[in-house]
């Protein structure tokens, strides 16, 4: 479907950006976002890292710090410095991009640092620096918004105290129609581009740029589209951040079951949550004194299972509650 549209447009030698029905050149509606997914903690050497796949954009962010600042004279006496470096890989665009940083990259580095700063409790780490390195591996329009979203997620992964996660999204003007999330073609052929970065919980805008023409009405409709879109992306960010740890929790919960199946001998102790140190110690002492007979072991196995069931129930109940709140 999409391919046929592209072919048609090539024949005419001009791109149909938006049809009368409001369908865009890649089949999206006016207020559709591209597919977005986040991965947190993808790099081992960095203190925090994240990867975003936003349509055909692929961006990697790494955070180091807070750490000692060199050169020392750049240090701020009352807060941490936030240094941001946005770079595009030579292979990120169809024609090879020269590896030297260009004016555009320097601009984006600056605006990213300034958009991230309001979200960070930077006064907690005076005289230090938080370095944020952003590498665009593949670009297809809207990279600065995607970069803000990953950078913020990488900061959170590094354990840096934040007021909120920062979300970025862009709106655009295609023949006096406001559309959400421009890709590369729409950005180049369209009449306007408006990137926005937003703190959803605090309801604060930390970046708003606009390039091209926006009438007052168009501007408002664009903003009205952007805020809900940002909230959608925010949810994805949060889920990605939590999933890094919940995966481990699930693994840990699954592991004993598998082992129990493979090993028919019930030698192990029930993996009860340790509530009291003393009780635990007593248990250990008992275990040392007399090795549990098979019957006891069976009982334990049984109790273990029942424990798990109750745990599962608890989990499901908390989930339900969360859903209700939402």
């Amino acid at each position: 479907m999409i391919i046929s549209v592209k072919k048609m447009s090539k024949d005419k030698e001009e791109v149909v950006l938006i049809t009368k029905d409001g369908i865009r050149h890649d089949g999206r509606k006016k207020d559709d976002l591209r597919d977005i997914s986040f991965h947190v903690g993808v790099l081992d050497r960095a203190d925090g890292s994240a990867l975003i796949t936003w349509g055909r954009n692929k961006i990697l962010a790494a955070v180091y710090g807070p750490r000692e600042l060199h050169p020392k004279h750049m240090a701020l006496p009352d807060r941490a410095l936030i240094r941001c470096e946005y770079r595009m890989a030579t292979f990120s665009v169809p024609d090879r991009k020269s590896p030297a940083p260009k004016r555009r990259e320097r601009e984006i580095s600056k605006i990213l640092a300034e958009a991230l700063e309001p979200s960070v409790f930077n006064y907690l780490y005076p005289r230090s620096v938080i370095d944020v390195y952003i590498n665009v591996l593949q670009a297809d329009g809207g990279t600065r918004c995607a970069a803000i979203a990953v950078a913020s997620l990488a900061l959170a992964d590094a354990g840096i105290p934040l007021k909120d996660l920062v979300v970025g999204c862009a709106a655009g003007n295609l023949y006096d129609q406001a559309v959400l999330d421009l890709d590369d073609v729409e950005d180049k052929e369209g009449q306007g581009d408006m990137p926005l970065a937003y703190l959803p919980h605090i309801d604060e805008i930390v970046l708003l740029q606009s390039d091209g023409v926006f009438s007052p009405d168009l501007y408002k409709t664009a903003l009205d589209m952007l805020i809900p879109a940002c909230k959608k992306i925010y949810k994805l960010q949060r889920d990605a951040l939590k999933s890094k740890y919940s995966q481990i929790t699930e693994e840990v919960a699954d592991a004993p079951e598998k082992e129990a199946k493979s090993k028919e001998k019930a030698k192990k102790e029930p993996a009860k949550p340790a509530k009291d140190g003393k009780k635990e110690a007593k248990k250990k002492a008992d275990d040392k004194k007399e090795k549990p007979s098979e019957k006891e072991a069976k009982k334990r196995k049984f109790s273990k299972k029942s424990d798990k069931k109750t745990d599962d129930e608890k989990k499901s109940s908390t989930k339900k509650e969360k859903d209700d709140k939402k």
Binding site: R67, F121, A156, D157, P161, K163, H201, K242
Partner: peptide, 24 residues
Amino acid sequence: IISQVIGLVTVKDNQISVVSLKGK
């Protein structure tokens, strides 16, 4: 009362804190 970090909530005698999972 809002969390600053990714972590686990602990409530103790009317005091709310979050145990961070990472950080310097």
